[in-house]
């Protein structure tokens, strides 16, 4: 019986994320806390579920960047409320991703989108921001003991900075400890191969699939 009631709240969260309704997400999230439902499950079965549905609509070209941004605003509004109530054990299995836009580029819509979808897919995502020097990206990845470095650019002029990141990783002896994935308008699989990246994602949803593949679907195991 309480499972059912719980599920009604989770569905409401999922729907509100999908409907870009930040206010409703906050209201329901507060109720989840008040009713002492499991915050972790509310995130997984509510907020993340809604974001995944939004991601699917994005892939189906029914949602576009504006809709996805508002869905992600709603998701994060809920996460802010629920996150303090989840216990550490539930968090520890998550793979850590550092994400950023390389130096010379300040376009970060694509990066933000990938961050959102990776958050929703259960990764622990650390956003380094935009216009990042290659050294700073590598330093952050090592400091955070990241499993993944995700790099994005919209500008052809900055593609060499991605190659630099991998070179510096090799010199630091950290290359084998981390997967490097790249994405963004001007890139291609052949570019990713050439610079020695572990993968290339042509779109934000495909970045999630790519990481799942690279980790052989062990994320939620």
């Amino acid at each position: 019986m309480s499972d059912n009631k719980e599920q009604i709240f989770f569905t409401a969260l999922s729907d509100a994320v999908l409907d870009m309704d930040e206010t409703t997400v906050e209201e329901v999230a507060h109720k989840v806390i008040k009713e002492k439902f499991d915050a972790y499950r509310a995130i997984e079965n509510g907020l993340v579920d809604g974001m995944n549905r939004a991601g699917q609509l994005f892939e189906d070209e029914e949602y576009f960047i504006p809709e996805i941004l508002l869905c992600s605003d709603a998701m994060y509004a809920g996460l802010n409320i629920l996150n303090p109530y989840i216990n550490r054990q539930q968090q520890s299995a998550r793979k850590k991703v550092v994400i950023g836009v390389v130096e010379g580029d300040t376009h970060d819509i694509g990066k933000n989108l990938v961050k959102t979808l990776l958050d929703a897919a259960g990764f622990d995502v650390i956003d380094l921001g935009r216009d990042l020097p290659p050294c700073q990206i590598v330093d952050a990845a090592i400091a955070e003991q990241a499993d993944v470095i995700a790099l994005s650019t919209l500008m052809t002029t900055t593609m060499d900075a991605m190659a630099s990141v991998i070179k510096i990783l090799q010199e630091s002896g950290y290359r084998d400890s981390v997967k490097v994935i790249v994405g963004g308008g001007p890139l291609s699989q052949s570019f990713a191969d050439r610079i020695g990246a572990d993968g290339y994602a042509p779109s934000a949803p495909s970045a999630v699939k790519l990481l799942h593949k690279l980790f052989q679907d062990t994320i939620h195991a």
């Binding site: 504006p66 809709e67 941004l69 508002l70 605003d73 970060d108 819509i109 933000n112």
Partner: peptide, 8 residues
């Protein structure tokens, strides 16, 4: 990002 939000 701001413009994309304002669109809606």
């Amino acid at each position: 990002v701001n413009l994309s939000r304002l669109v809606l």
